[in-house]
Write a protein that binds this DNA or RNA. Structure first.
Length: 234
DNA sequence: CCAGACGTTGTT
DNA sequence: GTCTGG
DNA sequence: CCAGACGTTGTT
DNA sequence: GTCTGG
């Protein structure tokens, strides 16, 4: 799945050019983005123009009674996203990009603490998750713009760490197709594949990332020696 | 018809 | 809002 | 995803 | 165990 990620790339101007985020959007270096945070995203206006904005991670559908619903909807399964009532409408008209440069997966181990891995593109370049977004009108004048990250089966490169991974669009062409309102849903669904093994990089990291409130560079530090999976005793 | 869910992951 | 289950 | 709470009454 | 908050 995808419950934590990074956008640590220091070159903000490169990000603005690469993803058409606009000049005014504030882009902070993030080492530990968690559900409930405002995240850097690209949506499409009614006129069909891509624009950068901040969306709260955790989709709150327009019919939700309260905003806490979002914590249950941080991911949408690619295999069923066109069937689920909570996502089907968004799939047709509110697809978005969520800008990142890595994500974290926790590997469960017998007799040892869960080991976090930082997964990136093999070349370390920033990328976009395939996402969906929604607008929610709360009590008073409260308006929330929220999003979810689509997940799929993990590729072979990550199979020993976890069985799910977020959908990372492969290139700018796929990103434009995902954002384009003219792309029919069946065509958009074809983009929801695992990143190819040869484009995937991974590195075990230390426990700093475990705490969602800790958003510091040491989240990316190498796992301490002995943190790698020990040979099974049996 | 009304009531209640609407989500994913991992673990038992 | 829309679908499913009762 | 992980971490941390999981409760009520009454008083400030 | 399950829910909430980050």
């Amino acid at each position: 799945m995808c419950g934590r990620y990074s956008l640590a790339t220091p070159a903000q101007n490169d990000l603005r050019a690469r993803f058409a985020l606009g000049e005014s959007l504030e882009i902070r270096r993030r080492f530990n983005v968690a559900p409930g945070d405002d995240v850097v995203a690209v949506t499409t206006s009614k006129e069909g123009v891509a624009r950068g904005e901040l969306l709260r991670w955790g989709l709150v559908p327009h019919w939700a009674k309260d905003a806490r619903t979002g914590f249950k909807m941080i991911n949408a399964r690619a295999e069923t996203v066109d069937e689920k009532p909570a996502y089907r409408g968004a799939l047709a008209t509110r697809r978005c990009l969520i800008v990142a440069d890595g994500f974290y997966e926790w590997q469960r181990r017998e007799g040892a603490p869960k080991l976090p891995w930082h997964v990136t593109r093999a070349d370390g370049a920033p990328f976009a998750f395939a996402g969906l977004w929604a607008i929610w009108h709360g009590p008073a004048e409260q308006v929330l713009r929220t999003c979810t990250i689509i997940t799929t089966q993990a590729n072979a490169r990550l199979a020993d760490v976890h069985d799910r991974m977020p959908v990372i669009l492969r290139d700018q062409g796929e990103e434009e197709a995902w954002l384009d309102h003219a792309t029919p849903v069946p065509v958009a669904l074809e983009l929801l594949r695992p990143l190819p093994d040869e484009l995937t990089g991974r590195r075990a990291v230390g426990p700093a990332v475990n705490d969602a409130r800790h958003d510091e560079p040491d989240c990316l530090d190498d796992a301490p020696a002995g943190g790698e999976p020990a040979p099974s005793l049996f």
